[in-house]
């Protein structure tokens, strides 16, 4: 059953174009059934009524699918629970009186916009380089034309679940976007629909990823632990294979 707890917060505050700093807040009388973001709502209401500016944090669906939310909570992306986004982390996992440190997802490719909000548009730019099948509306054959092995469809779906939250980048000691890129490359590598473009897809996406200043993979697998959707590093292995194959066979 739910109870009320009090917490001490150290929250990263930063304005556009300025250096940031940690500030202390108190979160009192927090219901343990509340979500982490609802706890921040309560704190923000108090800050507002006290004449301050509320903590800016990104959020939208609050059911773990839109990929908006995410911060480092006590040094862990999305907090302490595996396969959980911050909005789905509940306060029952915190102890009364605990100090909670909250800071934004950091990476050179994710500049801070304000407080806990970072710019993750690099991920969109990677997708724009080929994270899709180029089929114009109206071109499609009847859906049942190509049977696809159930296992392949399932493995593709495993990869396709990525919500683009950027936790993998923040968790990576090198600020790499390999898991993100690998998930999209894998989704299409596993399906026949993705095959005609697989060469330019992997080359284009990896190239963009490098250009945007994401780091290199050093196979430390922090990303996979951080991923709220449990996307496996085998996708990175597949990305590497796809890359080698594409580099050897590219016509350009």
């Amino acid at each position: 059953m739910s109870e009320k707890i009090n917490l001490k917060l150290k929250v990263w505050r930063q304005n556009r174009g300025e250096a940031g700093r940690f500030e202390d807040y108190e979160a009192n009388g927090i219901d343990t059934d509340a979500s982490f973001l609802e706890m921040l709502d309560v704190v923000n209401e108090e800050i507002t009524l006290g004449g301050g500016e509320p903590i800016a944090f990104e959020h939208d669906c609050r059911e773990g699918i839109c990929g908006c939310c995410g911060s480092l909570v006590n040094g862990k992306t999305h907090g302490s629970h595996e396969r959980t986004t911050l909005c789905q982390l509940h306060m029952r996992h915190f102890k009364d009186g605990e100090t909670v440190v909250i800071e934004p997802f950091r990476a050179t490719a994710f500049p801070v916009i304000k407080d806990l909000i970072v710019d993750r548009s690099g991920l969109d730019q990677i997708i724009a380089e080929g994270g899709y099948v180029s089929v114009k509306t109206g071109n499609a054959p009847e859906a049942s034309t190509t049977p696809i092995k159930k296992e392949m469809a399932e493995a593709s779906m495993d990869a396709a679940q990525c919500i683009g939250c950027g936790a993998c980048v923040a968790a990576c000691p090198n600020g790499a976007a390999m898991l993100f890129t690998a998930a999209k490359v894998s989704q299409y590598a596993l399906l026949p629909q993705g095959h005609p473009e697989r060469t330019q897809r992997v080359l284009g996406m990896v190239n963009k990823m490098d250009e945007l200043g994401f780091g290199n993979c050093s196979n430390e697998y922090e990303c996979a632990v951080a991923c709220p959707k449990g996307i496996d590093v085998k996708n990175i292995a597949r990305l590497n294979r796809e890359f080698v194959k594409a580099s050897l066979t590219s016509e350009k």
Binding site: K150, E154, S156
Partner: peptide
């Protein structure tokens, strides 16, 4: 829509025979 989405590589659930 289903035709188009399948062509886009959306991993819809499939049966063991490979069909949707």
């Amino acid at each position: 829509i289903i035709d188009h989405c399948v062509a886009q590589g959306i991993p819809f659930a499939r049966e063991y025979g490979g069909h949707l």
